[in-house]
């Protein structure tokens, strides 16, 4: 007998791309956690100025070069991952459970509950998310916390819709009615019968979304509405660096590649998980 886990592991071995993605994700997470030890110039994460080394192109000492005030870009990218991952944890930590609960409720209870939740979701989905997040952060003061609030306020709708779709399919299965006939409560059915069947979709979606939250946050700060200097943030670094194009190209391109690396990692891992768990997340 092969267990689910063994089968998943076997599929993983046939899926080197997912393994690469996983390694990329792990490297980003480890770099963020151990930033003070990993970064070559940990002090450059703050408001340090070193005019002797400003605009230095990538070399053996500064692998990604230095910025307009002489700080090591690699060190700032590594510290930037801290900000990005904090954002991911904050947004998905709230939006995912919220969306899952509403989605399951709408799919399971149907009727008026479904109508209210799903029409609200429709309205929220009609707002271009970046535009809304921009508006919200602008009305509040731009900083990491407010960016997190703005993104979370929009992000739950996608999880809600996904889980609603998954749940709607599950409730038509006979085992839900069978559970009800054998005396199971609504809580039991939601948590024990339905939720386990949503886990595959949830884990794939969370992984893919981690990448997109990073992208989203970086875009906000690129437009000047996210994390404020001197906190090292990847989007801010790109937008500052863009002033020195094309001659000091590395100042914009290197942090850009840093964002790309993290998003790519989460995306490859998420795609691999999707193939492995065989879920459709639309």
């Amino acid at each position: 007998m092969i267990t689910n886990r063994q089968r998943a592991l076997r599929r993983l071995r046939h899926n080197p791309i997912a393994v690469i993605g996983g390694l990329m994700v792990i490297s980003v997470i480890l770099a963020a956690i151990f930033a003070p030890f990993v970064a070559p110039f940990p002090s450059h994460a703050g408001a340090v100025v070193d005019f002797r080394h400003r605009h230095a192109p990538p070399d053996a000492l500064h692998w990604m070069g230095t910025d307009n005030v002489g700080r090591d870009i690699l060190s700032r990218v590594i510290f930037g991952y801290r900000v990005s991952l904090t954002l991911v944890a904050g947004v998905l930590g709230v939006a995912m459970p919220f969306g899952v609960i509403l989605g399951m409720a709408a799919g399971y209870f149907r009727g008026r509950t479904e109508f209210i939740i799903m029409r609200l979701t429709d309205i929220m989905l009609a707002m271009p998310p970046l535009v809304m997040a921009l508006a919200i952060t602008a009305i509040l003061t731009p900083d990491l916390g407010n960016a997190m609030i703005a993104i979370t306020a929009l992000w739950w709708t996608w999880h809600c819709r996904l889980i609603y779709r998954v749940t709607s399919a599950i409730v038509t299965e006979d085992f839900i009615e069978a559970a009800r006939l054998s005396g199971a409560s609504h809580t039991h059915i939601l948590l024990r019968e339905i939720l386990p069947n949503c886990m595959a979709a949830i884990s794939v979606k969370t992984t893919l979304d981690a990448g997109f939250v990073i992208l989203f946050g970086a875009t906000l700060s690129f437009l000047g509405l996210g994390v404020q200097p001197p906190t090292p943030d990847l989007g801010t670094m790109v937008s500052t660096g863009a002033q020195f194009l094309p001659d000091q190209w590395w100042e914009a391109v290197m942090p850009g590649l840093g964002v790309l690396y993290a998003i790519l990692g989460f995306n490859l891992l998420g795609d691999g998980l999707r193939d492995m768990l065989d879920v459709e997340i639309g």
Partner: peptide, 11 residues
């Protein structure tokens, strides 16, 4: 009728 649908695959 269909045991594939009447048994929860995760339990």
């Amino acid at each position: 009728q269909n045991p594939a649908s009447s048994l929860n695959p995760k339990r």
